[in-house]
Simulated scan of single mutants.
Amino acid sequence: MLEIRHLRYFLAVAEELHFGRAAKRLHISQPPLSKRISELERQLDVRLFHRLPTGVVLTDQGRAFLPYAQDALESVLKAESVLRRHSSERVGRIRIAFPPDTSAGLVATVSRGMWENGCDIEVLEASTAQQLDMLRTGAIDVGLVRHPYSAKQAVSSPALYKPLGVAVSRDHPIASRTTVDLADLAGQPLLIFPRDLAPDLHDSMLGACRKHGFVPQRIRYAARLVDALLVLEKSVMLTSAEATSLWPDVVWVPLTGEPLEWRTSVVVSDRPTGNDMLERTAALILEALVAQEGWRHLPSTPGLAPGAVEAPRPGAPTG
Protein backbone atom coordinates (compact mmCIF):
# COMPACT_ATOMS: atom_id res chain seq x y z
CA MET A 1 0.00 0.00 0.00
CA LEU A 2 1.31 3.44 -0.98
CA GLU A 3 1.97 5.56 2.11
CA ILE A 4 2.66 9.25 2.61
CA ARG A 5 6.18 8.49 3.77
CA HIS A 6 6.86 6.80 0.43
CA LEU A 7 6.12 10.11 -1.29
CA ARG A 8 8.28 12.06 1.20
CA TYR A 9 11.19 9.67 0.74
CA PHE A 10 10.86 9.63 -3.07
CA LEU A 11 10.82 13.44 -3.29
CA ALA A 12 13.81 13.76 -0.97
CA VAL A 13 15.89 11.37 -3.09
CA ALA A 14 14.65 12.98 -6.34
CA GLU A 15 15.75 16.40 -5.11
CA GLU A 16 19.08 15.35 -3.54
CA LEU A 17 19.92 12.67 -6.17
CA HIS A 18 21.84 10.87 -3.43
CA PHE A 19 20.57 8.38 -0.83
CA GLY A 20 22.99 9.52 1.83
CA ARG A 21 22.12 13.20 1.59
CA ALA A 22 18.40 12.40 1.36
CA ALA A 23 18.59 10.21 4.49
CA LYS A 24 20.39 12.99 6.39
CA ARG A 25 17.70 15.48 5.31
CA LEU A 26 14.96 13.10 6.48
CA HIS A 27 16.79 12.40 9.78
CA ILE A 28 16.88 8.67 9.17
CA SER A 29 19.63 6.23 8.30
CA GLN A 30 20.25 5.21 4.70
CA PRO A 31 19.16 1.52 4.83
CA PRO A 32 15.50 2.24 5.77
CA LEU A 33 15.37 4.89 3.05
CA SER A 34 16.69 2.50 0.42
CA LYS A 35 14.21 -0.13 1.61
CA ARG A 36 11.21 2.22 1.30
CA ILE A 37 12.22 3.35 -2.19
CA SER A 38 12.52 -0.28 -3.26
CA GLU A 39 9.05 -0.96 -1.78
CA LEU A 40 7.65 1.96 -3.75
CA GLU A 41 9.20 0.72 -6.98
CA ARG A 42 7.74 -2.76 -6.40
CA GLN A 43 4.28 -1.35 -5.72
CA LEU A 44 4.37 0.82 -8.86
CA ASP A 45 6.11 -1.94 -10.84
CA VAL A 46 8.61 0.54 -12.28
CA ARG A 47 12.18 1.60 -11.61
CA LEU A 48 12.24 5.21 -10.42
CA PHE A 49 16.00 5.71 -10.12
CA HIS A 50 19.13 4.56 -11.86
CA ARG A 51 21.62 3.69 -9.09
CA LEU A 52 25.09 5.00 -9.91
CA PRO A 53 28.38 4.85 -7.91
CA THR A 54 28.19 8.60 -7.29
CA GLY A 55 24.44 8.86 -6.61
CA VAL A 56 21.19 8.35 -8.51
CA VAL A 57 19.33 9.84 -11.46
CA LEU A 58 15.64 9.69 -12.23
CA THR A 59 14.46 7.25 -14.86
CA ASP A 60 11.88 8.30 -17.44
CA GLN A 61 9.22 6.76 -15.21
CA GLY A 62 10.64 8.61 -12.20
CA ARG A 63 10.47 11.94 -14.02
CA ALA A 64 6.88 11.22 -15.05
CA PHE A 65 5.93 10.31 -11.47
CA LEU A 66 7.64 13.35 -9.89
CA PRO A 67 4.98 16.10 -10.48
CA TYR A 68 2.16 13.81 -9.34
CA ALA A 69 4.05 12.93 -6.17
CA GLN A 70 4.66 16.64 -5.50
CA ASP A 71 0.98 17.49 -6.00
CA ALA A 72 -0.16 14.58 -3.83
CA LEU A 73 2.12 15.48 -0.96
CA GLU A 74 1.17 19.16 -1.19
CA SER A 75 -2.52 18.21 -0.98
CA VAL A 76 -1.88 16.07 2.06
CA LEU A 77 0.02 18.86 3.79
CA LYS A 78 -2.81 21.32 3.09
CA ALA A 79 -5.35 18.84 4.44
CA GLU A 80 -3.28 18.34 7.58
CA SER A 81 -3.11 22.10 8.06
CA VAL A 82 -6.89 22.46 7.73
CA LEU A 83 -7.50 19.62 10.19
CA ARG A 84 -5.08 21.07 12.72
CA ARG A 85 -6.81 24.42 12.46
CA HIS A 86 -10.18 22.72 12.75
CA SER A 87 -9.19 20.96 15.96
CA SER A 88 -7.51 23.93 17.61
CA GLU A 89 -9.19 27.05 16.25
CA ARG A 90 -12.88 26.27 15.79
CA VAL A 91 -14.89 29.28 16.89
CA GLY A 92 -18.12 27.42 17.54
CA ARG A 93 -21.24 26.55 15.56
CA ILE A 94 -23.42 29.00 13.66
CA ARG A 95 -27.01 28.10 12.76
CA ILE A 96 -27.99 29.30 9.28
CA ALA A 97 -31.48 29.10 7.76
CA PHE A 98 -32.02 29.17 3.98
CA PRO A 99 -35.31 29.49 2.06
CA PRO A 100 -36.64 26.34 0.34
CA ASP A 101 -35.61 27.47 -3.16
CA THR A 102 -31.92 27.79 -2.25
CA SER A 103 -29.63 25.81 -4.56
CA ALA A 104 -27.49 22.96 -3.28
CA GLY A 105 -24.44 24.66 -4.80
CA LEU A 106 -24.94 27.76 -2.68
CA VAL A 107 -25.28 25.77 0.55
CA ALA A 108 -22.16 23.75 -0.32
CA THR A 109 -20.16 26.91 -1.07
CA VAL A 110 -21.18 28.53 2.21
CA SER A 111 -20.49 25.36 4.18
CA ARG A 112 -17.02 25.01 2.65
CA GLY A 113 -16.21 28.67 3.26
CA MET A 114 -17.29 28.47 6.89
CA TRP A 115 -15.17 25.37 7.43
CA GLU A 116 -12.14 27.14 5.98
CA ASN A 117 -12.83 30.05 8.35
CA GLY A 118 -12.68 27.72 11.32
CA CYS A 119 -16.41 27.52 12.03
CA ASP A 120 -18.95 24.70 12.00
CA ILE A 121 -22.49 25.37 10.77
CA GLU A 122 -25.92 23.87 11.18
CA VAL A 123 -28.12 24.31 8.09
CA LEU A 124 -31.90 24.60 8.34
CA GLU A 125 -34.63 25.14 5.71
CA ALA A 126 -37.22 27.77 6.59
CA SER A 127 -39.44 30.34 4.93
CA THR A 128 -38.98 34.06 5.46
CA ALA A 129 -41.75 34.16 8.08
CA GLN A 130 -40.30 31.17 9.91
CA GLN A 131 -36.79 32.61 9.82
CA LEU A 132 -37.86 35.90 11.35
CA ASP A 133 -39.54 34.03 14.21
CA MET A 134 -36.49 31.80 14.67
CA LEU A 135 -34.18 34.81 14.69
CA ARG A 136 -36.34 36.56 17.27
CA THR A 137 -36.34 33.54 19.59
CA GLY A 138 -32.65 32.79 19.12
CA ALA A 139 -33.24 29.51 17.26
CA ILE A 140 -30.94 30.64 14.43
CA ASP A 141 -28.01 33.05 14.17
CA VAL A 142 -28.23 33.90 10.45
CA GLY A 143 -31.06 33.88 7.93
CA LEU A 144 -31.59 34.57 4.24
CA VAL A 145 -34.93 36.33 3.79
CA ARG A 146 -36.97 37.82 0.96
CA HIS A 147 -38.24 41.38 0.86
CA PRO A 148 -40.32 43.07 2.06
CA TYR A 149 -39.99 42.15 5.73
CA SER A 150 -39.67 43.73 9.14
CA ALA A 151 -37.02 42.27 11.40
CA LYS A 152 -36.68 43.18 15.06
CA GLN A 153 -33.59 42.22 17.04
CA ALA A 154 -31.72 41.74 13.76
CA VAL A 155 -29.10 43.38 11.58
CA SER A 156 -29.68 43.34 7.82
CA SER A 157 -27.26 43.25 4.93
CA PRO A 158 -27.61 45.38 1.80
CA ALA A 159 -30.17 43.85 -0.57
CA LEU A 160 -29.43 41.85 -3.70
CA TYR A 161 -31.98 41.65 -6.50
CA LYS A 162 -33.18 39.66 -9.51
CA PRO A 163 -35.54 40.95 -12.21
CA LEU A 164 -38.72 38.94 -12.61
CA GLY A 165 -40.23 37.55 -15.78
CA VAL A 166 -43.12 35.26 -16.66
CA ALA A 167 -42.84 31.46 -16.63
CA VAL A 168 -45.28 29.58 -18.88
CA SER A 169 -45.49 26.20 -20.58
CA ARG A 170 -43.89 25.91 -24.02
CA ASP A 171 -47.28 25.72 -25.75
CA HIS A 172 -48.68 28.78 -23.99
CA PRO A 173 -49.44 31.73 -26.34
CA ILE A 174 -47.05 33.95 -24.36
CA ALA A 175 -44.13 31.54 -24.85
CA SER A 176 -43.33 32.93 -28.30
CA ARG A 177 -43.05 36.53 -27.08
CA THR A 178 -39.68 38.21 -26.61
CA THR A 179 -41.06 40.38 -23.78
CA VAL A 180 -44.45 40.79 -22.12
CA ASP A 181 -46.21 43.56 -20.20
CA LEU A 182 -47.91 42.76 -16.91
CA ALA A 183 -51.16 44.12 -18.34
CA ASP A 184 -50.96 41.49 -21.12
CA LEU A 185 -51.44 38.82 -18.45
CA ALA A 186 -54.91 40.10 -17.50
CA GLY A 187 -57.35 37.22 -17.12
CA GLN A 188 -54.61 34.57 -16.89
CA PRO A 189 -54.56 32.15 -13.91
CA LEU A 190 -51.64 32.91 -11.59
CA LEU A 191 -49.49 30.31 -9.84
CA ILE A 192 -48.00 31.66 -6.61
CA PHE A 193 -46.42 30.39 -3.40
CA PRO A 194 -48.60 30.00 -0.25
CA ARG A 195 -49.04 33.25 1.64
CA ASP A 196 -47.82 31.87 4.96
CA LEU A 197 -44.31 31.38 3.53
CA ALA A 198 -43.78 35.14 3.18
CA PRO A 199 -46.94 37.16 3.89
CA ASP A 200 -45.49 40.63 3.16
CA LEU A 201 -43.97 39.41 -0.08
CA HIS A 202 -47.18 37.70 -1.18
CA ASP A 203 -49.30 40.80 -0.58
CA SER A 204 -46.73 43.10 -2.17
CA MET A 205 -46.61 41.03 -5.34
CA LEU A 206 -50.37 40.84 -5.80
CA GLY A 207 -50.62 44.59 -5.17
CA ALA A 208 -48.01 45.27 -7.83
CA CYS A 209 -49.85 43.03 -10.29
CA ARG A 210 -53.09 44.97 -9.77
CA LYS A 211 -51.24 48.29 -10.07
CA HIS A 212 -49.85 47.27 -13.48
CA GLY A 213 -53.18 45.97 -14.79
CA PHE A 214 -52.86 42.26 -14.09
CA VAL A 215 -55.83 40.85 -12.18
CA PRO A 216 -55.55 37.03 -12.25
CA GLN A 217 -58.51 34.97 -13.40
CA ARG A 218 -57.83 32.75 -10.41
CA ILE A 219 -54.94 32.10 -8.05
CA ARG A 220 -53.37 28.67 -7.53
CA TYR A 221 -51.05 28.17 -4.55
CA ALA A 222 -48.08 25.80 -4.76
CA ALA A 223 -44.51 25.51 -3.48
CA ARG A 224 -43.67 22.15 -5.11
CA LEU A 225 -44.28 20.62 -8.58
CA VAL A 226 -44.49 24.14 -9.95
CA ASP A 227 -43.24 23.25 -13.42
CA ALA A 228 -45.79 20.44 -13.76
CA LEU A 229 -48.64 22.71 -12.70
CA LEU A 230 -47.60 25.38 -15.21
CA VAL A 231 -47.82 22.80 -17.98
CA LEU A 232 -51.03 21.10 -16.83
CA GLU A 233 -53.03 24.17 -15.88
CA LYS A 234 -51.66 26.69 -18.42
CA SER A 235 -51.01 29.13 -15.56
CA VAL A 236 -48.48 31.94 -15.45
CA MET A 237 -45.91 32.51 -12.73
CA LEU A 238 -43.75 35.51 -11.92
CA THR A 239 -40.24 34.28 -11.22
CA SER A 240 -36.58 34.66 -12.17
CA ALA A 241 -34.86 33.15 -15.18
CA GLU A 242 -32.59 31.07 -12.94
CA ALA A 243 -35.59 29.48 -11.19
CA THR A 244 -36.80 27.96 -14.47
CA SER A 245 -33.43 26.79 -15.78
CA LEU A 246 -34.07 23.14 -14.84
CA TRP A 247 -37.64 23.01 -16.15
CA PRO A 248 -37.43 21.68 -19.75
CA ASP A 249 -41.13 22.22 -20.52
CA VAL A 250 -41.24 25.81 -19.25
CA VAL A 251 -40.27 29.05 -21.03
CA TRP A 252 -39.25 32.25 -19.26
CA VAL A 253 -40.24 35.57 -20.89
CA PRO A 254 -38.84 38.90 -19.56
CA LEU A 255 -41.22 41.58 -18.32
CA THR A 256 -40.98 44.80 -20.34
CA GLY A 257 -39.03 47.41 -18.42
CA GLU A 258 -38.31 45.07 -15.48
CA PRO A 259 -41.17 46.45 -13.33
CA LEU A 260 -40.84 43.68 -10.74
CA GLU A 261 -37.90 42.15 -8.96
CA TRP A 262 -37.06 39.87 -6.08
CA ARG A 263 -34.88 41.23 -3.32
CA THR A 264 -33.07 39.26 -0.67
CA SER A 265 -30.94 40.11 2.36
CA VAL A 266 -28.95 38.26 4.97
CA VAL A 267 -30.15 38.94 8.49
CA VAL A 268 -28.12 38.18 11.60
CA SER A 269 -28.89 38.29 15.28
CA ASP A 270 -28.08 41.57 17.01
CA ARG A 271 -27.22 39.70 20.20
CA PRO A 272 -23.56 40.16 21.26
CA THR A 273 -21.37 37.26 20.09
CA GLY A 274 -17.87 38.29 21.10
CA ASN A 275 -16.47 37.82 17.56
CA ASP A 276 -17.00 39.00 14.01
CA MET A 277 -18.02 35.60 12.61
CA LEU A 278 -21.65 36.56 12.00
CA GLU A 279 -20.65 39.48 9.80
CA ARG A 280 -18.14 37.28 7.97
CA THR A 281 -20.88 34.68 7.49
CA ALA A 282 -23.21 37.29 5.99
CA ALA A 283 -20.49 38.46 3.59
CA LEU A 284 -19.81 34.86 2.52
CA ILE A 285 -23.50 34.20 1.82
CA LEU A 286 -23.86 37.41 -0.21
CA GLU A 287 -20.80 36.50 -2.28
CA ALA A 288 -22.17 32.99 -2.91
CA LEU A 289 -25.58 34.37 -3.93
CA VAL A 290 -23.95 36.45 -6.66
CA ALA A 291 -21.65 33.65 -7.84
CA GLN A 292 -24.05 30.68 -7.57
CA GLU A 293 -27.55 32.02 -8.15
CA GLY A 294 -27.18 35.12 -10.30
CA TRP A 295 -28.25 37.72 -7.73
CA ARG A 296 -27.13 41.29 -8.45
CA HIS A 297 -25.87 44.11 -6.25
CA LEU A 298 -27.95 47.21 -5.69
CA PRO A 299 -26.18 50.57 -5.31
CA SER A 300 -25.73 50.50 -1.55
CA THR A 301 -23.30 51.03 1.27
CA PRO A 302 -21.37 47.80 1.96
CA GLY A 303 -21.73 46.11 5.31
CA LEU A 304 -24.57 45.40 7.70
CA ALA A 305 -27.13 48.01 8.72
CA PRO A 306 -29.34 47.83 11.82
CA GLY A 307 -33.11 47.90 11.49
CA ALA A 308 -35.76 46.77 9.06
CA VAL A 309 -35.27 46.67 5.33
CA GLU A 310 -38.19 47.30 3.02
CA ALA A 311 -38.33 46.77 -0.74
CA PRO A 312 -40.03 49.47 -2.80
CA ARG A 313 -40.25 47.09 -5.75
CA PRO A 314 -41.84 43.76 -4.85
CA GLY A 315 -41.02 40.25 -5.99
CA ALA A 316 -42.32 36.74 -5.56
CA PRO A 317 -39.94 33.91 -4.60
CA THR A 318 -41.00 30.72 -2.89
CA GLY A 319 -39.20 31.50 0.35
Results as ranks from 00 to 15, higher is better:
residue 60 D to I: 05
residue 61 Q to P: 00
residue 62 G to V: 00
residue 63 R to F: 09
residue 63 R to C: 05
residue 64 A to G: 07
residue 64 A to Q: 06
residue 64 A to S: 08
residue 64 A to F: 05
residue 64 A to D: 06
residue 65 F to C: 03
residue 67 P to D: 01
residue 68 Y to F: 13
residue 69 A to R: 02
residue 70 Q to G: 04
residue 70 Q to N: 00
residue 71 D to T: 05
residue 71 D to Y: 04
residue 73 L to P: 02
residue 73 L to H: 05
residue 73 L to F: 00
residue 73 L to E: 05
residue 75 S to T: 13
residue 75 S to I: 11
residue 75 S to C: 12
residue 76 V to G: 02
residue 76 V to F: 15
residue 77 L to I: 06
residue 77 L to F: 11
residue 77 L to T: 07
residue 77 L to N: 13
residue 77 L to C: 06
residue 78 K to Q: 09
residue 78 K to P: 02
residue 79 A to Q: 11
residue 80 E to V: 09
residue 80 E to H: 06
residue 81 S to M: 08
residue 81 S to R: 06
residue 82 V to L: 15
residue 84 R to G: 11
residue 84 R to E: 12
residue 85 R to G: 14
residue 86 H to L: 14
residue 86 H to T: 14
residue 88 S to Y: 04
residue 88 S to T: 15
residue 89 E to W: 09
residue 89 E to A: 13
residue 90 R to S: 15
residue 94 I to F: 15
residue 95 R to N: 12
residue 95 R to L: 10
residue 96 I to V: 14
residue 96 I to T: 01
residue 98 F to L: 11
residue 99 P to F: 00
residue 99 P to L: 02
residue 99 P to D: 04
residue 100 P to V: 05
residue 100 P to K: 06
residue 100 P to A: 12
residue 100 P to H: 11
residue 101 D to N: 13
residue 101 D to S: 10
residue 104 A to G: 12
residue 104 A to M: 12
residue 106 L to H: 04
residue 107 V to H: 00
residue 108 A to E: 15
residue 111 S to I: 12
residue 111 S to Q: 15
residue 112 R to K: 14
residue 113 G to A: 07
residue 114 M to L: 15
residue 114 M to K: 10
residue 115 W to I: 14
residue 116 E to C: 01
residue 118 G to A: 03
residue 122 E to K: 02
residue 123 V to C: 08
residue 125 E to M: 07
residue 125 E to F: 09
residue 126 A to E: 13
residue 127 S to W: 01
residue 127 S to I: 03
residue 127 S to D: 00
residue 128 T to Y: 10
residue 130 Q to D: 05
residue 130 Q to L: 03
residue 132 L to R: 04
residue 134 M to R: 11
residue 135 L to K: 04
residue 135 L to G: 02
residue 136 R to E: 13
residue 142 V to H: 04
residue 143 G to D: 00
residue 143 G to W: 01
residue 144 L to R: 02
residue 145 V to T: 07
residue 146 R to Q: 15
residue 147 H to E: 02
residue 147 H to Q: 01
residue 148 P to K: 00
residue 149 Y to R: 14
residue 150 S to E: 08
residue 152 K to G: 11
residue 153 Q to L: 03
residue 153 Q to I: 10
residue 154 A to W: 07
residue 154 A to V: 00
residue 156 S to P: 03
residue 159 A to G: 00
residue 159 A to Y: 06
residue 160 L to M: 04
